[in-house]
């Protein structure tokens, strides 16, 4: 499954990059993300809870930040296993300044899902992904506004 999304964050690229790579911010903003523990340099173990019917359940996994260039881009590699299946996601996130206090966040990548999730949730998975992504960026925007205030 292809992942492709563009969002605008009311903060400059450096600030946006910091927020996107800050575990504390992510726990607050990623829907269902319960914890993000650092287990190595740029590697975190994550616990995620999804409440959407077909993919409902707790997922455990790792999140890796790779090829990070501060203020410009990074690659997010996530692996999750849950009772209903697994998710593997590899997304490149590029940051582009729009104005002094605005950044365009461009996400491009692939997600592989397996197990029951893939079989039954197939029809709605891309919908679920964009819904969750939308929720995340909405929360991130709020976070950015809060920080700038």
């Amino acid at each position: 499954m292809k992942i492709s999304a563009i969002h605008e964050i009311p903060a400059n690229p450096v600030k946006t990059f910091e927020m996107l790579t800050d575990p504390d911010v992510l726990v607050r903003t990623v829907p269902g993300l319960n914890s993000l523990q650092s287990v190595g340099e740029n590697v975190y173990s994550a616990e995620l809870e999804v409440g959407i019917k077909a993919v409902k359940g707790r997922y455990k996994g790792t999140v890796k930040l790779v090829d990070a260039i501060s203020g410009e881009q990074f690659r997010l590699v996530m692996d999750g296993e849950g009772p209903l299946g697994f998710v593997h996601q590899d997304v490149i996130i590029k940051l582009e300044p729009i104005s002094e206090n605005e950044t365009k966040v461009n996400c491009e990548g692939e997600a592989t899902v397996g197990g029951v999730v893939a079989g039954i949730g197939q029809r709605m998975l891309s919908g679920v992904a964009s819904l969750l992504m939308g929720q995340f960026f909405k929360a991130l925007k709020k976070e950015a506004i809060k920080v700038s205030m």
Partner: peptide, 14 residues
């Protein structure tokens, strides 16, 4: 099946 071998016809809808 998808290219990763995931079955895509696991209900009688598919």
């Amino acid at each position: 099946f998808d290219e990763a071998g995931q079955p895509l016809s696991t209900t009688l809808m598919e």
